[in-house]
């Protein structure tokens, strides 16, 4: 029994979400190998080799894998995957894009967004926007799984000394090409990895008012998130969205400002350790999950809070 983890990276650095998947893999048991598929990604393989718990790094360094297009990488993973009992990846947009394609090529099911490992074939995952937790047993020989990062601690990035083995197989399906990308720039911590998050909703009124939250976030070393309402209203870009259809987060402290707390938003943040809600509507559903609720106008409360920190 051995597990193959698909590393999440940008050809420069190994993404933190991979480390949570490593922890899940070690809970499954057996050898843990990691595949780094990309172009010019030797540095990522070196970083992966020093992650605690990894015994082997497979490095597929080829132009065909540069942008990790699912059409190409899935063929590689499906070929390598037949030697493993488990093939897992973090449940990021990259993992969600790739893994079901791999599963279908292997003619097996995929278990999405796993939050708990019960045994080598039994796992727990949230369904219905996190309103129910399903315990599911896989009946397939190869278990293809995506891991929800907030369900597992990150493995230590140092301390391992895995061997790096080159994979020469080149798969280029030739049916898709990368055209370009537009990445949002931010100096603040990444949303899914931040220990404190300050989030704004429709109550913020407009995009400029998010400056109030940014100032507060900088004092707390926090990331800034948003509800779907704030994203749809065009206040902030969509990669800031927390919820069932956005990012799933579980920081130590989540401060929800001007967010009513729809089911879909709660699905993305209700595993946070401490939740604070600032809302002027005392009936808002967010207060039913908040540890500390403050019924107040956010335009008074947020600057005051900022001043007192």
């Amino acid at each position: 029994m051995a597990t193959l983890i698909i590393a999440e990276h940008d050809n420069q650095s190994l993404k933190g979400a991979t480390l949570n998947a490593v922890t899940a893999a070690t809970q499954i048991g057996g050898d843990v190998h990691i595949l780094v598929a990309g172009a010019g990604c030797q540095g990522v393989a070196d970083a992966a080799a020093s992650v605690a718990g990894i015994s082997k790094v497979l490095l597929a360094d080829n132009a065909a894998y540069e942008h990790q297009l699912a059409e190409n990488v899935s063929l590689l993973v499906a070929e390598l995957g037949t030697d493993y009992s488990h093939v897992i990846a973090p449940a990021t947009t990259a993992g969600k894009n790739l893994m079901p394609r791999v599963a279908a090529l292997l003619d097996v099911a995929q278990l999405s967004d796993v939050i708990r490992v019960d045994s080598e074939d039994t796992f727990a995952r949230p369904i219905y926007a996190g309103n129910a937790i399903a315990t599911v047993k896989s009946l397939d020989a190869i278990k293809v799984i995506t891991i929800r990062g907030t369900g597992f601690d990150a493995a230590a990035a140092e301390g391992g000394s895995a061997v790096i083995e080159a994979v020469t197989a080149v798969h280029d399906a030739g049916i898709s090409t990368f055209v370009g990308e537009e990445m949002a720039k931010s100096d603040r911590p990444e949303l899914t990895a931040a220990s404190v998050i300050v989030s704004g909703g429709r109550g913020m009124g407009n995009g400029e008012n998010f400056a109030l939250l940014e100032s507060l976030a900088d004092k707390l070393g926090a990331a800034v998130g948003a509800s779907r309402a704030a994203v749809d209203a065009g206040f902030v870009p969509n990669d800031m969205q927390v919820g069932q259809t956005g990012k799933i987060v579980a920081p130590d402290l989540y401060i929800a400002v001007g967010i009513s707390g729809a089911i879909q938003h709660l699905a993305g943040m209700k595993d946070s350790k401490v939740i604070v809600a600032i809302n002027k509507d005392e009936e808002a559903p967010i207060f039913s999950v908040a540890d500390y609720g403050l019924v107040a106008d956010l335009f008074d409360a947020v600057p005051e809070l900022d001043g007192k920190l």
């Binding site: 898709s176 990445m183 949002a184």
Partner: peptide, 11 residues
């Protein structure tokens, strides 16, 4: 819509 922003592909 990908983590961190937008990506365009041609299929």
């Amino acid at each position: 819509e990908v983590d961190g922003g937008l990506q365009t592909v041609e299929l």
